[in-house]
Design a binder for these strands. Structure first.
Lengths: 137, 137
DNA sequence: CGTAAGCCTGTACCCGGGTACCGGATGCAA
DNA sequence: TTGCATCCGGTACCCGGGTACAGGCTTACG
């Protein structure tokens, strides 16, 4: 398969394929006599794996490491990395939840300004009416 | 207060203050005769508001809009933006939760490779053993 | 065999959110 | 008044994850 076809099937830009190759996520593929890349069919599946791992919250560097580690099994560290990533996700969820709670209070309390809210028991962070002069462009 | 003091109290880099000024988050402050910025005390509080809003998931552009909108109250749209942001956060939390579930399954099932897992009932996305050849740098 | 579509490399650019460095000017205290 | 810390504007760079473009070569189809 040629770049265009792989890119289309995987739903990626051609440039992105070459980018992944540079980043070490994709092996250097075979070439035609003329120098065009020729990918094996499995590449599409591999790209799906990469995208899935990205969705799982891994950075490209992390994905590269995971693929590298996973190439010879038993993959040393795949499980551990998943466990670590779960902890990271739990932290993110907790952060978002507290943010959500604050926003819900903002809505609930009918705050009318970020900097100079007049609502009673304003939930907005510790401003207590001092910042309203400082932002006037 | 001079830049350095404001920066230190707010826990920001001086460059960041000037960056915020360029971005319209901070009003252009008064200047000394020699041209040095002189900030009112409230600026520190305003910066805390900005940081808080960032933590609430707003981008700098959004924060600028919020401050702009909030400067004359009743702030048209603050509540609405908060409601929208809550929906966005709920979507993010749902995504993270599903990601977490997948990772938990990976751990549970003792997957041993991203691309070539030999565990039974592998939860990894649809790869079914086809991608293992495609990534070998 | 001609021609258009597709691919090649290299380089530069995009976004958001900053951060660093430069040479020169100021501020403040001794 | 001198000397050092601080600040000035401007510009360039960082990260991650791509995307775009130019100029030239290859491949496939009729």
């Amino acid at each position: 398969m040629r770049t265009g076809e792989v890119a289309e099937r995987a739903g990626l830009n051609i440039q992105t394929l070459r980018y992944y190759e540079r980043r070490g996520l994709l092996a250097k593929p075979a070439r035609s006599n003329g120098g065009h890349r020729l990918y094996p069919d499995e590449t599409v599946a591999l790209l799906q794996v990469i995208k899935a791992a990205q969705r799982l919250g891994f950075s490209l560097d992390e994905v590269a490491g995971l693929l590298e580690a996973g190439r010879r099994h038993p993959a040393p560290g795949l499980r551990q990395r998943a466990v670590d990533k779960i902890a990271e996700i739990d932290r993110k969820i907790a952060d978002l939840a507290s943010v959500r709670a604050t926003l819900a209070e903002v809505v609930e309390a009918r705050c009318d300004s970020l900097t100079d809210c007049t609502c009673p028991d304003c939930p907005l962070p510790v401003v207590t009416g001092a910042a309203q002069e400082a932002g006037e462009a």
